[in-house]
């Protein structure tokens, strides 16, 4: 696909993540403020929506996740997970926020793994992370 398609895909991806990401954040905060698990889970649904839009954009423009996107996604996930764990350990989370996080983070992780498995198969998904065997393959004879 040419540069125009790359740019158009980027626009769709950033636009959808801006909307769903901000909406998700807003629902999480609203759920915490109103002590409502249901509202908090709407935030989870919004994040899932963003991911689905990203998948649709990839399909429509015949592309896959870029390395930068994967790195950003994993980085944000790691940051949020760490923050969640630290906040839980120091007792800074309300019950609602705790359960919201407990549902959201595994949903995102399972969603991502499901995507890998459906896209690459179980073996292929593992090989995506199996850095050492990839390096063995690359070593010169």
């Amino acid at each position: 696909m040419g540069p125009t398609a790359n740019i158009e895909r980027e626009i769709v991806v950033i636009s959808s993540w801006t909307v769903f990401g901000l909406l998700g954040l807003a629902f999480f905060l609203e759920g915490a403020a109103r002590n409502s698990l249901l509202i908090g889970l709407l935030g989870t649904a919004a994040i899932a929506g963003g991911f689905i839009c990203h998948l649709i954009a990839n399909y429509a423009f015949e592309q896959t996740f870029k390395k930068g996107e994967v790195a950003l996604g994993l980085g944000v996930f790691a940051f949020v997970t760490s923050g969640f764990i630290i906040a839980w350990l120091v007792g800074g989370l309300s019950t609602t926020s705790f359960y919201t996080g407990l549902v959201t983070l595994p949903v995102i992780a399972v969603g991502f793994l499901s995507f890998l498995v459906t896209r690459y198969g179980v073996g292929g998904a593992f090989r995506k992370f199996d850095v050492s065997s990839q390096q063995r393959v690359r070593l010169p004879k």
Binding site: I7, I11, V12, I14, S15, S16, T18, V19, L23
Partner: peptide, 13 residues
């Protein structure tokens, strides 16, 4: 044109 996509979607939201 690029920004109009995001701007219109934000309006809808």
């Amino acid at each position: 044109g690029f920004l109009s996509v995001l701007q219109t979607v934000l309006l809808g939201l």
